[in-house]
């Protein structure tokens, strides 16, 4: 199967997973982050099988398809940029309850807040990429 078709199917599967799991709903995400309030632990039930399947699948994959594993991503240098980035991400994520995947999954509702979030997400990505390129 061509990798374009594979990528298309994976993208559809990923958006479907976000929708079915409830992680496309900002209140479910903010509910998970609300540890001191009415904590909603649904996200743990989502991450469990997702991380588990990926872990087991990549273990098997390394044996069956070793040529796909010759190079992986370099680990991030855990310096100021890394920590500041994660804090910014977490603050924005907590403010609205959306991250990049769910923002795309919600675009079909064609509501102004979702569109504004998505456009600003793209602006943030472009600006940060330009800053990183100059470092």
């Amino acid at each position: 199967m061509s990798r374009y078709l594979l990528a298309f199917v994976a993208g559809a599967l990923f958006a479907l997973g976000l929708a079915v799991s409830g992680m496309s709903q900002p209140s479910k995400v903010r509910g998970f982050l609300d540890f001191l309030g009415e904590w909603d632990m649904t996200m743990l039930f989502v991450l469990g099988p997702a991380v588990g399947i990926y872990f087991l699948g990549t273990r098997v994959g390394k044996k069956v398809l070793p040529h796909k594993f010759v190079s992986g991503p370099d680990p991030e240098k855990m310096g100021f940029r890394f920590f500041a980035g994660n804090v910014c991400f977490g603050v924005g994520w907590g403010m609205v309850g959306l991250c990049p995947g769910p923002a795309i999954a919600n675009l079909g509702q064609a509501n102004l807040p979702v569109v504004v979030f998505f456009v600003c997400l793209l602006v943030g990505i472009s600006v940060a990429d330009r800053v990183v390129a100059r470092l």
Partner: peptide, 12 residues
Amino acid sequence: AGLLVGAGARFA
């Protein structure tokens, strides 16, 4: 929030 999530993810 959109700006923070986008830029934060790239820096992280």
